[in-house]
């Protein structure tokens, strides 16, 4: 049976892990390679690096981080943040990344997703979606009374007017191999994933969906996989601050009937 995946996410800025990493037995809490090695030992199923380096000129730094990490850890590695060109993808894959996640560039030019999935294969093209619930709409007349979500770009700063479910379906048609779905309403709040949004997207597409944004405890991960029907869950702070180890999370999930790799 295919297992549900548990994916820690590292925010990387100028070659260092940011958003506070609080590990014991770590020489240097900001070194992404060291953090990646610890997660591998604990049984993480994949890793995501999110490059939050402000300027496009500093792309060589994340490439170097990937290069060094790929020497030490032997699990799938996804890199997102600021990917705009075919060459960006080529350089990251060459350095040892397995997948790249694309957000703003996909919205600006959706054909870009089609092109790069044909060049590199769908399996390495993840489309990252930042979605926010549309509020203030009269739901009784629209969408059969269903909630709607709108997607945002530029790290969640710019609204697009595009419907999240329709966008996910379109990206699947254009060759995306996976969706990384972040709820902007929930991100950083530790109140749990937006399971309604996650379920809607997961049921609308035939490709895997990773739930992200809002995991604050172990129960939230369970809800994302069950109520949200996600294929994988991504979390940052609950792993960084050692609230739970990945192993503890997996044992808990297994005890509750979720198939995980232990």
């Amino acid at each position: 049976m295919l297992t549900k995946r548990i994916i820690p996410c590292l925010d990387v800025k100028e070659g260092r892990v940011v958003k506070g990493v609080n590990f014991l037995n770590l020489k240097d809490a900001g070194d992404p390679v060291e953090v990646a090695e610890i997660y591998e030992r604990e049984g993480a199923d994949e890793l995501v690096f999110l490059d939050i380096t402000a300027s496009h000129e500093n792309r060589d730094i994340i490439i170097d981080v990937v290069y060094k990490t790929a020497e030490k850890v032997f699990m799938p590695l996804t890199v997102g943040g600021g990917i705009r060109r075919v060459e960006d993808i080529r350089a990251l894959l060459k350095a040892g990344a397995d997948k790249v996640s694309i957000n703003t560039a996909a919205v600006k030019d959706s054909i870009f997703v089609k092109r790069v999935s044909e060049i590199f294969g769908s399996q390495c093209i993840v489309v990252s979606i930042d979605a926010k619930e549309v509020v203030g709409e009269d739901l009784s007349n629209k969408n059969g009374g269903e909630k709607r979500w709108e997607i945002y770009t530029h790290g969640g700063r710019r609204p697009t007017g595009i419907d999240a479910v329709e966008w996910a379906e379109k990206m699947e048609d254009y060759g995306a191999g996976e969706i990384l779905l972040t709820s902007m309403d929930r991100d950083g709040k530790k109140e749990g994933y937006d399971v309604e949004l996650t379920r809607r997207i997961s049921e609308s597409v035939g490709i895997p969906v990773i739930a992200s944004g809002g995991a604050g405890n172990i129960e939230h991960l369970y809800d994302g996989l069950t109520k949200g029907k996600a294929d994988a869950v991504l979390a940052a702070s609950i792993f960084h601050y050692r609230e739970y180890t990945i192993r503890e999370v997996k044992e808990y999930l297994r005890n509750r009937g979720i198939i995980v790799r232990l």
């Binding site: 295919l2 297992t3 769908s122 996976e178 490709i207």
Partner: peptide, 19 residues
């Protein structure tokens, strides 16, 4: 087989850890 052709409702690509 496409999700529509099976009762298992699988996603394609087959992505992740399997035994």
């Amino acid at each position: 087989p496409d999700a529509s052709n099976t009762t298992t409702n699988i996603k394609i690509p087959h992505m992740g850890w399997n035994s």
